[in-house]
């Protein structure tokens, strides 16, 4: 599908510690491929995928970067224009989970305040090596009020679902922004409309309990 046919491009960043599977999830989602060994990411890269979001073609642009803290200086270019963030940890690596607070702080400092976030606990297929229980991730996600899924790139669990959740929330956010802008132009002739807006959109986009993990 040519880019011109897409209604919008959603820029999404994948963030998280080194080796949690950032590149892996991008490849799995965009190319439907999985390799056992990957090379560490240097610099920044992205892949694109055209999806049908309830019948509307949307270009998902998924940005990937190195996990090591030192390379966070690239963030200005990386974060610019980001609408969604897929924050990721590795369920077999406690440290990657512990560092989520660092990442959330980093997002707060660099990303737009209304950026959409989702949390992914990767490698949920590796049952015997699991270090972080699912309810830990669940609890953290609830604290920050963000949707959460455990995923597996290897076994292709919840990959499409988590990106679709992101896309829906981004669309919701954008239509909310557009409507409030319109409201602004109408110079608030009916204040009830603005108040009622968010609930209307939520109803419309059928985002019910998106954080429920089905893994």
């Amino acid at each position: 599908m040519a880019p011109a046919e897409c209604e919008a491009t959603y820029k999404v960043l994948v963030l998280g510690d080194s080796n949690v599977g950032k590149t892996c999830i991008v490849h799995r989602y965009c190319d439907q491929t999985y390799y056992d060994t990957y090379i560490s990411t240097i610099g920044i890269d992205f892949k694109q995928k055209i999806i049908s979001l309830d019948g509307t073609p949307i270009k998902m642009q998924i940005w990937d970067t190195a996990g090591q803290e030192r390379f966070r200086t690239l963030t200005t270019a990386y974060y610019r224009g980001a609408m969604g963030i897929l924050l990721m940890y590795d369920v077999t690596n406690q440290e990657s989970f512990n560092n989520l607070t660092y990442w959330l702080k980093n997002i707060e400092e660099n990303a737009s305040p209304d950026v959409i976030k989702v949390l992914a606990g990767n490698k949920c297929d590796a049952v015997s090596q699991r270090m972080v229980e699912q309810d830990m991730g669940q609890k953290l996600a609830e604290n920050y009020d963000i949707p959460f899924y455990e995923v597996s790139c290897k076994q292709n669990i919840n990959i499409d679902k988590i990106f679709l959740t992101l896309a829906r929330h981004i669309r919701e956010q954008r239509s909310y922004q557009q409507l409030t802008e319109r409201e602004h132009y109408d110079s608030g002739q009916n204040g009830n409309i603005t108040l009622d807006l968010k609930s209307r959109i939520l109803e419309h986009t059928s985002l019910k309990e998106p954080w429920k993990c089905t893994c």
Partner: peptide, 19 residues
């Protein structure tokens, strides 16, 4: 075109074109 930082050459420089 938003690219004056040359950050797209980061990988080239970091590891001298190894990739």
């Amino acid at each position: 075109h938003d690219s004056g930082s040359m950050c797209f050459c980061f990988r080239w420089l970091l590891v001298w074109f190894k990739r």
